[in-house]
Design a protein around this nucleic acid. Sequence first.
RNA 1: GCCCGGGUGGUGGAAUGGCAGACACAGCGGACUUAAAAUCCGCUUCCCGCAAGGGAGUGCGGGUUCGAGUCCCGCCCCGGGCACCA
Length: 882
Amino acid sequence: MPDRYDPSSFEAKWRERWKAADLFATRQDPDRPKFYGLDFFPYPSGAGLSVGHCRNYIPTDVICRMKYMQGYNVLHPMGFDAFGLPAENEAIKNKVHPAPMVKRYAENYRRQMELIGISYDWSRSFASSDPEYYKWTQWIFKRLFEKGLAYRKEAAVNWCPQCKTVLADEEVAGGLCWRCESVVEKRFIPQWFFRITAYAQRLLDDLEELDWPEGIKQMQRNWIGRSEGVEFEMKVALPPGGPSEGDLEVLSDHKPLTFRVFTTRIDTVFGMTFAVLAPEHPLVDRLLRHVPEDRRAAIEEYRAAAKRLSEQDRLATTHEKTGVFTGLYAINPVNGQEVPIWVADYVLYGYGTGAIMAVPAHDERDFEFATKFGIPIVQVIAPKDGSPVDLPWVDKDGVMVASGEYTGMTVAEGQRALGEWMEALGIGERKVQYRLRDWLISRQRYWGCPIPIIHDAEGNMEAVPDDQLPVLLPEVEHYEPTGDGTSPLAHIEEFVNCTDSEGRLARRETDTMGGFACSSWYFLRFCDPHNGRQPWSPDSVRYWMPVDCYVGGAEHAVMHLLYARFWTKFLYDEGLVPVKEPFQRLENQGMVLALTPFRHPRENERLEVGQPGIQITFEEAQRLPQDQVFYRWEKMSKSKGNVVTPDEAVEKFGADALRVYELFVAPFDQAIQWTDEGLQGAARFLSRVFRIASEVAPWWRFDWEDGLQGDLSAPARELRRKTHQTIRKATEDIERFAFNTYVAALMTFVNSFNDFLRAVGPEPTESEKAVACEALQSLILLVSPAAPHSADEIWESLGGGGFTYQMEWPKYDEALCREDTLTIAVQVNGKLRDTVEVPADATREQVESAALASAKVQSHVGGKPIKKVVYVPGKLVNIVAP
RNA sequence: GCCCGGGUGGUGGAAUGGCAGACACAGCGGACUUAAAAUCCGCUUCCCGCAAGGGAGUGCGGGUUCGAGUCCCGCCCCGGGCACCA
C-alpha cells in the first residue's frame, strides 16, 4: 500500500480498467429509481477543454456517481453540439471543412473528459451534425411546420455583416452579434420563425414549479416580458379643407383612418397630449396623403433616416429623442380632445401596435419628448394626500385627477373602470402583451441542419416527406457565406433542384437551421440514441425524462434554456413526450479565473472605458519593470492566453487532485481563482488519505462489522461518531451541490482519523481495529465520487475486488452520530462569557445550574437579579440580568 | 434607470436567528535531515496586556430580538443580466 498520492502510478490504469469493464454503461433495472444527470451540450472547440470547463463536468460526475452507488439507474451521457456558427467560423478560419474538424475536436474533448475520469456512458454519444440525429431535428421541424408553429415571413431581422447571416433576438446582446461582436444591422428579408410567442404564457407560468436558480427564472420572466394593459382605437381627425375621408380616402383603400395604441396606464389617458407612430408604421404612408406638401418631405426624410440607423443606435437610451409632427391630429376617445400625431423612433414598431398614446406627465420618455418639442404636459395622477410632485410622476400609488367622472379613483380602480368602459363601447379591450418575439431560426450558412421544405413554381411550400428524411447537407468544397442574404447552398444546383410531391420541378429551401434548434431536443435523444425508426421510443422518454439535474453556465438563460422548454412543451402537446418541462433542476457553475498580467498604457495608447490596462503575455510581464505590470483575475480564455488545460493540471498533480481542488476551492456557483497552491493542497489531502489507509492496512479485515461488539474505548467511540457524522454530511452536501463543504467534511474526517491513530498507538484493541476499518471503508467510499482513481486504488490495495463505483454508498446511523457530551455556550445578557460541558442527556435544570456555577458567569452577573434565562437545548444558555 | 446575485481574517471560504472565522492556502515556530525538498507537530481576526484577562469585530447607518453575518428599513460598493417594450 503506497502511503502517498502518486497519480502517475495508478490513475491511467484505472481509467483503462473502467473502460474495459464498460463500467459506466447505463443500467435500466426496473426495480431501481432513475437519475438523469446532464451537462450542457458542448460545442467542441479546437482549443480543447480548459480547467474552466471541468468545473461543469466534475460536480455533475460527483452527483451521478453518488446516485449510482445509492442504487439509482443513472443516465449520464455526453454528446456534441457540432452544427452551427462557432464550428463553421472556426473551420473557415482554419481553411478546412467543418465535418472532419468537429469530429477531431470532439475526439479530443472525449479524451480530455476521460482523462479527468468523468463517468459518461459513451455508447450513447452523438453529434448534432450526424445525419442519424439531424434527420429527427428535421422531423420535429416538420411537426412544427404542420401545426403552423414554423412559418416563413418577411420581417425586419438582425443581420450580422461579419457572420453574413441573420440572428435571433436572443443572439444579439446590446446590439452586437454574440459570436463576433459586430454591430448588427437591420434587413428586411423573408425568414423562418418558430412561433414561440404562442407559448409565452405557459413558459412564464411553468417556471414556478422548477428548481432553478432564481436569477435565471427572473431573466426568463424579463425576457418574456408580460404586461397587462388596454389596446384601443384612435381616430384621425382630418384637417378641414384638405382631402376628406369621404372622397380620396375611401376611394384609395376603403379603410377608415384609425390606428390602435397599447398602454399599461390607461388610467392616465386623460393626460394624453400627443400620439406617436413608429416610423415603420404602415399608417404613416396613408397619412402622408393628407399631410401638407411641406411636411411630407420632412416625414419621408425622417423615416429614411430611421431606417438607416443601426439597431444599436436606435435602442441606445442615450440617444436623444427625435421625431416629426405630421400636422394631423387624433381624437382621444375619452374626452374628444384632438392631440397632435408625431412620428418618432422611440416607439418601436415590433412591440404592441407600434403606436402609443403619449402622456408626458406620467411617462419619462414622453416627458422628455414633450419637453424637447414644447408639447403641453397635463398631470392627471396625484398622490393620495394631494401633495405636489415633480413631473414626470410615474408612481402607481396615486389617485386620478382632472379625469372627468373618473376623478378620485385610484390607479387600479381607474384602470378597471376605463377598461370596462372601452370594452362596452367597442373602442378597445384589455390585453396582455409580451416582449418575447418569435424565434428566428433560419441562417444563411452552410454548416447547419437543412430545413426540410420545398418551394414549388407557384411559390407554395411543402414539407419533404418523412421517408425522404434526412435532407442531407451536401458535401462541398466551398461553403463560405455569400453575404448577399442567401445561403451558400443556394448556389449548389444539385441541392436546390428537386421535384415536389406531384413530380413538378421545384426548389429546395436553402437556409439552414440555427444551432439552437439542434440543441433543443438532444436530451430526449440521449434516452434512446440509436433508434432508427423514431426520434425516441415512448417508453424511453417515459422512463428517463425529465432531466433530474442539468448543469451548465448561466449564459444560456434566455437562449438554449428557453428554446428547449418551448420544444418540450410542443412535443408534450403532440403526445410525444410525457413531461411539460425538460429540466427539473438546474445548476449554474461559476467561472474559473486566472491571474492575468497587464501593463499600464504608454503615452500614445488610450484605454476603452472599463478596460483595466493593456493585456500582455507572461513572458512580457517577466521582462518589464515591476512597476509597469499588474495582475488581475480574468476569465480563462484562449484570447487572453491564460488558459490552463486539464492535460497540464493532470500531468502536474493528477486527475483526482484536479477534481478535489475544483470541488473544494469555492461554492459550486461562484467564480474561482485558479492557483497551483490550491491544487497542491488537494494533492496533499489525497496523500493523507493514502497514508491513513496504509496505517490501517495491517489491521484490515472485510468482516470488521463482527469486531464492533462490546464497549468501545473513548477514541474508538469518537471515531465511530465522526464516521457516521461524515457520512451524513457528505450525503447531504452532495445532494445540495455544496461540494466545497463535502470535501471539507472529508478533510475534517481525515484529521480526526489521524488523531485517533495517534491516540490508540501501534497496538490497538480488536474493537479499535474494527472501528478503524469501518472508518476507512467509509472514507474510501465517500471519497470515491470526488477521487475515483484513488478510491479504487486504495480499495484494491486492501485486497478488495471490483470498483468502488459498484459498491453501496455508506449509510449512517442517527444514534451513532449523537455526541455523549455537549459544549454549551453560556451568555450573560447576550454576550458569550463561558462554555460548560454537560452530558448529552442533561436536563434543562442541570444545564442551567452548570451555567450558573461558572465563576466567569457569576462575575458578569455580579449579583444582579436574574430576569430570565433563555435555554436552547444542546446549544446555549443566556442569562438575562440587566 | 430596472431586475438578480454578492460584500466575513493576509487569501479562498464556513456558519437551520444561538460559541463568527469550520476546512484549506499563505505565513511563522518546532521535529526529522549534513542540508534542502517532502512529511509530521504547533501557532496564526484585530487592539491593549509579560500573562491572566479585557475590548472591538462580518461594507455603512438605523431597527426587531434575551441574542443578528443571518430578519426588517435606509444607504454605499462590487459582479451579472436587461434596457426608449408604452
